[in-house]
């Protein structure tokens, strides 16, 4: 049994579950409030879906993309974000942990910092809000666009979703790295992240080449939604891009995450507390 800072792997996993249980308890403390919050997030996310639905009801297809194909592409964004936010809420809120001094409490505990950051928080409301949109879209579209749900397709689908979640985690973590040097980047991160996500809701072939390049090489949201859905749909606009991109989602995710994690450890070494922890 491999030991991890003196704990067995089973203890680590058991601890993760007791963290999750505590989180769930906190969430359920204010039942009405949290249900309403999850519903509000659901409504907020449904806005762009409804707009897409209304446009396609009127125009039937855009550049050869039909309603269900577009909504299927969109579902990748919601489901991968749902997975991301379920696991990495701590990364999303990392700025706050540094400023409130929570981070210092983690540092004096006998466990890995990344583990504690990830395990200590779950935003169930966002998970459910985004997840519900994603599941509705998936159920509406997946049977209707000619996908054979064979074992290999299912495996690809799940890998793509997890890869997409890791890509988004890496983007959030990149911004959290700057917190170690007390540089606040939350606003900038939200600006870049959510605007790129807006682009990625539609096929990237709709946009000028410069935006396509940005979404492939800089903020790689193309690998979260466009390429995974193209693997199944093979619309003609895939000719504009290299075929290999279809398989790169998990690779992009893991490589990005690895690089950002390196930066994170460098940042941690440079960290000196904000000096206001309890």
């Amino acid at each position: 049994m491999k030991d991890y800072k003196g704990f067995t792997i089973f203890e680590i996993i058991a601890l993760f579950f007791s963290y999750s249980k505590l989180n769930l308890k906190t969430t359920l403390e204010y039942k009405f409030d949290r249900v309403l919050l999850a519903f509000a997030i659901f409504c907020r996310e449904m806005v762009s879906v409804i707009v897409m639905y209304l446009i396609l009801t009127r125009f039937v297809r855009i550049k050869g993309w039909e309603m269900n194909e577009m909504l299927f592409l969109y579902s990748f964004l919601f489901l991968s974000y749902c997975i991301f936010v379920f696991i990495f809420t701590g990364i999303r809120d990392f700025d706050g942990m540094v400023y409130s001094g929570d981070l210092d409490r983690f540092l004096i505990r006998p466990l890995g910092l990344m583990y504690q950051v990830i395990a200590s928080r779950v935003d169930y409301c966002a998970t459910i809000g985004h997840g519900a949109v994603g599941i509705i879209l998936f159920i509406k579209t997946s049977g209707d666009i000619g996908i054979q749900w064979t074992a290999s397709n299912i495996a690809y689908y799940l890998t793509a979703l997890i890869g997409g979640a890791i890509i988004q985690a890496a983007l959030f973590m990149l911004s959290s790295c700057f917190s170690f040097w007390t540089i606040r980047t939350t606003n900038l991160r939200n600006l870049i992240f959510f605007n790129s996500r807006r682009f990625a809701g539609y096929p990237i072939s709709f946009y000028p080449v410069i935006i396509q390049k940005l979404l492939i090489f800089v903020v790689p949201f193309a690998f979260v939604s466009f390429f995974p859905s193209q693997y199944f749909l093979r619309k003609t606009d895939m000719n504009m891009f290299w075929d290999g991109y279809l398989y790169l989602t998990p690779v992009v995710g893991v490589v990005m995450f690895f690089l950002v994690y390196k930066l994170w450890t460098v940042g941690l070494k440079n960290y000196s507390s904000s000096g206001n922890s309890m």
Partner: peptide, 29 residues
């Protein structure tokens, strides 16, 4: 209510869809 974030967000969503902010109303059913 103690937190109005949820209500504000739901209101925003309704305004976005129904006010024609994102799609001209003449394209709606």
């Amino acid at each position: 209510f103690y937190f109005t974030f949820s209500l504000v967000t739901i209101k925003d969503a309704a305004v976005m869809i129904l006010s024609g902010a994102l799609i001209p109303l003449w394209f709606m059913p």
